[in-house]
């Protein structure tokens, strides 16, 4: 069995689907992402290292938390990427489900492990921060629990993506899982406003002025931008690898099917 036939070329009319189609072309994606990847990776590393050094060493201590506040410079950007990554996963899944672009399926499959790692970093650093400040490693409040659910959604997505002999068949159930899980995103974000939680409410994105002094906010934002670029670089790299894997699989399948190699549909 070869993979499902590539989607037929989109006909006429400039719709959303057609605009997506331009970027769903794997060849074009490989060219663009190849050019973008080194810059993203370099910018991500530079900003992350700068922001972390700034935050962990040079930023002032906090009036109530002392030096412990420095865990924030890892915890908060990781939390942003845990949620941002899931937004990416959900968008890719939606596109894959509706327009059946194989590139979106591959992207969803490859984003999930990166998001899971950032979520794990967020949970671990949060636990390390909770013990000295709150007096506990873990509580079942709405924020902590919903982020743990996010982690399980990522892990479930990874498991489901790998549960089929033919990886292409996993795309649809995995996309449905990802979209169902997206309902958790607003719950995470607003959990601290809707319910009493041990976790404090948002500092940066609250109405009015940020509740963080500028000397602490600046390194946080630099690190956040750095983590964003690192995330994007990892996701792009993995997606490129996923495309190549799929091409290799298609080639091997074609070769196994007919040894007298005819140039069959090897398109991804």
């Amino acid at each position: 069995m070869d993979g499902p036939p590539a989607t037929p070329p989109a006909p006429k009319a400039p719709t959303l689907g057609n605009a997506l189609h331009r970027f769903a072309n794997p060849g074009r994606f490989m060219r663009l992402s190849g050019a973008l990847l080194p810059w993203l990776a370099a910018a991500g590393l530079a900003l992350s290292v700068t922001g972390l050094a700034w935050g962990l060493v040079f930023a002032p201590r906090d009036w109530q938390q002392g030096d412990t506040v420095r865990i924030m410079f890892i915890h908060v950007p990781a939390a942003w990427m845990a949620m941002g990554g899931y937004v990416g996963l959900a968008v890719a899944s939606f596109i894959g489900l509706v327009w059946r672009h194989p590139l979106a399926d591959i992207a969803a499959r490859e984003i999930a492990p990166v998001g899971a790692v950032f979520t794990a970093i967020c949970l671990i650093t949060g636990s390390l921060w909770g013990k000295p400040m709150w007096g506990t490693w873990w509580v079942w409040d709405a924020r902590l629990t919903s982020v743990l659910v996010l982690f399980f959604l990522y892990v479930g997505h990874i498991a489901l993506s790998n549960a089929f002999d033919d990886p292409e068949r996993a795309a649809r159930p995995a996309a449905i899982l990802a979209l169902i899980g997206a309902v958790n995103l607003p719950i995470i974000k607003f959990s601290v406003d809707w319910w009493n939680t041990l976790h404090q409410p948002a500092s940066v994105t609250r109405l009015g002025a940020p509740g963080i002094h500028v000397d602490i906010l600046q390194p946080l934002l630099v690190t956040g931008l750095g983590f964003l670029f690192v995330f994007a670089a990892l996701a792009l790299l993995r997606t490129r690898t996923g495309i190549l894997e799929r091409r290799a699989r298609a080639l091997m399948a074609a070769r196994a099917a007919e040894p007298a190699a005819t140039p069959s549909a090897v398109a991804v």
Binding site: P60, R61, D62, W63, Q64, Q65, V69, M72, M133, W134, G135, T136, V139, L198, Q200, P201, A202, S203, R206, G211, I212, H213, D215, I216
Partner: peptide
């Protein structure tokens, strides 16, 4: 039986607080 501390969402250097 247990008391946990809860901190608010403000972060500032001690000098500013003083």
């Amino acid at each position: 039986s247990t008391v946990l501390a809860r901190h608010d969402e403000t972060y500032m250097p001690p000098e500013v607080a003083d």
